[in-house]
């Protein structure tokens, strides 16, 4: 536990003593902000149009669901941005140690591999939590000017957290394989993207295989979280995905 903390602290410090953390968090929020603006203004326009139509036909205006129409797309976008950003966060965790030779210090210290991996995983995870925490601001604004349901938002964030940790675990794995950060980032990226898109093939191939494939897909499992459904099946999927990444 002491070793885990030591490594966790060192990694976190190294994120924050270099520009990495600030750039990643900052740009992630910029990107999220732009898409948030687009989605919300789209939603507002739609509401106005519905209101106008209701007035024309002298009906009660139809109630629009802000959770369904705005927050869910936002969550989906966030999971996509995480796909772009997290490989960049994880790429240096081990490749940099290999390149500079500090891996020799780590491997000849009384620290088990498991402690080192978990320390690094937790550090990258903490950075991701901060990235997500930044997006709470957007959600707070929705609460100020609308009345969304809290439940789906919380499950959505839980889903985001799990999907992000899955990315990180595989990013960490690819980082151990190579000295080059770029190779680590690109292979993580491709690997995640394949798992992301694997569900799309399911429509083309036979139903059983398709079902199997879509079960492997990262994003299919996320849908339910964003809808507000908390299914243990999905949680188990992400946890096993994370565990597999770390174990490798």
């Amino acid at each position: 536990m002491k070793n885990f903390l030591a490594i966790f602290q060192r990694e976190t410090k190294s994120y924050f003593s270099s520009p990495i953390a600030y750039v990643v968090i900052g740009l992630f929020l910029v990107l999220a902000g732009i898409f948030y603006y687009l989605i919300i203004s789209n939603f507002v326009q739609m509401c106005m149009r519905v209101d106008m139509m209701a007035q024309q036909y002298r009906q009660m205006p139809q109630k629009m669901n802000v959770n369904l129409m705005a927050i869910r797309p936002i969550m989906h976008n966030l999971s996509l941005f995480a796909l772009f950003f997290l490989p960049l966060v994880t790429m240096r965790l081990y490749s940099d140690e290999k390149r500079t030779g500090t891996i020799e210090l780590l491997m000849t210290s009384p620290v088990s591999n498991w402690q080192a991996i978990m320390g690094k995983f937790a550090a990258a995870g903490a950075l991701f939590v901060l990235m997500l925490a930044g997006t709470f601001i957007y959600i707070i604004f929705i609460f100020l000017y609308g009345n969304p349901e809290l439940g789906p938002i919380l499950t959505g964030y839980l889903g985001l957290l799990l999907i992000g940790l899955s990315y990180i675990s595989f990013g960490l794995f690819f980082s151990t394989l190579t000295e080059s950060q770029i190779i680590a980032a690109v292979s993580t990226f491709v690997f995640i993207l394949v798992f992301w898109a694997i569900g799309w093939i399911s429509g083309i191939v036979s139903p059983t295989l398709g079902n199997l494939l879509s079960n492997f897909s990262l994003i299919e499992h996320f849908d339910d979280f964003a809808k507000g459904v908390l299914d243990t099946k999905h949680i188990v999927y992400y946890l096993s995905f994370i565990f597999m990444g770390l174990f490798l």
Binding site: N3, T102, E104, L105
Partner: peptide, 26 residues
């Protein structure tokens, strides 16, 4: 152990680095 290339975390300060090493060396 001092490997051929000293295993230094380039972005740390000397005292922080040694403190970290002391930590993981128990």
């Amino acid at each position: 152990y001092l490997p051929e290339n000293p295993p230094l975390y380039q972005d740390m300060r000397v005292c922080d680095y040694l403190d970290f090493v002391a930590k993981i060396k128990g």
